[in-house]
Computed example of a mutant assay.
Amino acid sequence: MTRYIRPVTVVVLSLLWLVPTYLLVVNGIVSSKDYSGTVHWLPTSFGFFDNVRQAWQAADLGPAMLNSALYATVSGALAVFVAAMAAFAATVLPGRGKVLWFWAVYVGSLFPVQAFLRPLFNGFASTGLYDTRLGLFVIYAATCVPFSFFILRNTMRSLPPEVAEAARMDGASWTRMFFSIHLPLVVPSLVAAFIFQFVWVWNELLFGITLSFSGGVRPVMAALAGLQGSYSTVGPPVVLAGALLVSVPTVAVFLAFQRMFVSSLKTNV
């Protein structure tokens, strides 16, 4: 009897997880003209493309999606590279206090982002970074470093120390070791960390609505939040169709790098 508990639990939890997604899809494809104000469990009409068109125009999703793509790609890649250098320093380079340095970097991921909003807003306003792409690049990259560092440090710690010792005996510099030996060995973890950060930046809302307001700067989730405030104008099906549209890039990135992502999880577990 006990052997069935685990698979049954997994199935039940999976169904509970899929119910909101199912309702999102069903109510997103229902025509806004036929929407009665109550949740649809079965599609009564098909108006998905019209809903997407209205969401695209009302929220100006095109520039917003381009902004988020830039933020997620550039900030995610920069954060992963910085985290890789920090992980290399905390695992391979000689020195003391490596545990202290680990917590000094990783503790940044333990605080809620809401705690940073007020000081960040004041700082951005006083330095001219408010409502600029550069400001969002900086905050997203800085916020993504701690968790990426956690993943990459664990992976580099699993590498045999003989690799670094052999490289040093052959006369390799620390820079050569980092770029030619350790980075290639942790490529799956680099990809996994990038996926995590890409998805987080793409779905991030608080920094987007706090540190930007113009259409040429704000990320897609901030634009979608503005669309959600227009319920009386566009209707819930349009908002849900917009949510389905903006979720496509993150799903595509995950599916494209799925094998490396799974491989990295096996390494870090």
Rank of each mutant, 00 (worst) to 15 (best):
T38F: 09
V8K: 10
I181V: 14
G216E: 05
Q114L: 07
W101V: 14
T2C: 11
A77I: 14
H40I: 13
L159V: 08
A256R: 13
V82G: 03
A115N: 14
L66N: 07
V251E: 00
S14D: 10
L240N: 03
Q57M: 06
D131S: 06
T91Y: 03
W41Q: 06
S173Q: 06
T38E: 13
Q258E: 14
L70M: 11
R157D: 04
F124P: 00
L206R: 00
A225G: 05
W56C: 02
N122G: 05
I151V: 09
A58Y: 01
M1V: 14
S31M: 12
V220I: 10
T73E: 01
V39I: 15
N154C: 02
V199D: 05
T73I: 07
A192M: 11
D60L: 14
P112D: 08
A125K: 14
A172W: 13
V80Y: 04
N154L: 13
Q258T: 09
K33Q: 10
V25E: 05
T267I: 13
F48H: 04
L100V: 15
T267L: 15
P188L: 06
V239H: 07
P161M: 11
V25F: 09
A125R: 15
V82N: 03
P20D: 13
N268P: 00
G171M: 08
G208D: 01
F111D: 09
S263G: 15
F124N: 04
Q258C: 05
V145M: 11
L265N: 11
V201T: 01
P161V: 12
L66H: 10
V25H: 04
V186C: 04
V52P: 00
F111T: 12
L93S: 09
L244W: 10
L129W: 08
V138P: 00
T132E: 05
S126P: 08
V246P: 00
P236A: 10
A83I: 02
L110K: 14
G216R: 03
T250G: 03
F178K: 04
A252N: 08
V187C: 07
S36M: 07
V30T: 14
M260E: 10
G97E: 04
T73Q: 01
A172V: 06
V12P: 11
V248L: 09
F198M: 06
L18H: 11
G226H: 02
P146I: 06
F198G: 01
G28I: 10
S263Y: 01
